[in-house]
Simulated assay, not measured.
Amino acid sequence: AEKIIRNWAARGVDVIFAHSDIYLEQVVTVAKQFPKVHFICELQLDPREYASDPETGKYTPDKMPANVVLAGDTPWEGNYLAGYTAALMSKKNKLGILQPFEAPPLNRYSNCFYFGAKAAKPDIEVKVIYIGDYIAPAETRDAVNSLAQQGCDVVFSQMDDNAAILEAKAKGIYLIPMYMDKLEVAPATVLTSVVMDWTTPLLGAIEAVAKKNFAAYRKQWYFRPLTAKDGSIYLGKWGSAVPDSVKKAVADVEKKLKSGALKVELVNEVIIK
Rank of each mutant, 00 (worst) to 15 (best):
T192S: 14
C112V: 02
A18C: 13
K248Y: 08
G260Q: 12
R141H: 03
A103P: 08
I129P: 06
V190K: 08
F113E: 04
N162H: 07
M159I: 13
A188I: 02
V267Y: 07
A215E: 12
G72Y: 04
P104F: 04
M180G: 10
A51Y: 12
F39M: 09
A241R: 12
R141D: 11
D252L: 06
V28F: 02
M196H: 04
S232T: 07
A261K: 12
G96K: 05
Y23V: 03
E184V: 11
M178A: 15
K3R: 13
K58V: 06
S259P: 02
Y80E: 03
Y179R: 10
A261S: 15
D21F: 05
I5S: 06
G12Y: 07
P104V: 05
S193V: 09
A117R: 10
V190Q: 09
K32C: 06
A170S: 14
W76Y: 15
Q44P: 00
L81K: 05
Q220R: 09
Y179C: 06
Y59N: 03
S193Y: 03
L88I: 00
E102P: 02
D160V: 11
T192Q: 05
M159D: 03
E125T: 08
F115W: 14
K273T: 15
F156Y: 15
K127E: 14
A210M: 08
S110L: 10
I22M: 15
D244Y: 06
V27W: 12
I124A: 06
V190L: 09
L106N: 01
Y234N: 03
W198Q: 14
S240F: 07
K256C: 13
P137T: 04
W76Q: 11
V264Q: 02
L175R: 13
M159L: 13
M180A: 14
V30F: 01
W8H: 14
E265C: 04
E55L: 12
H19M: 15
Q99A: 15
T227P: 05
M89N: 07
P54E: 07
L202F: 11
F214P: 07
G78W: 15
V154I: 00
D73L: 13
K182H: 10
R48D: 03
Y174P: 01
G12D: 02
T56G: 00
P104L: 06
T192P: 02
E184H: 10
G172Y: 05
V30A: 02
V264R: 02
Y130S: 13
V69Y: 09
K118S: 09
P177V: 11
A82K: 07
Q26W: 11
L183T: 08
E207P: 12
A241W: 01
A163V: 11
N162E: 09
G12K: 08
D230C: 02
E125V: 04
E125K: 14
R108T: 12
K229W: 00
D252H: 01
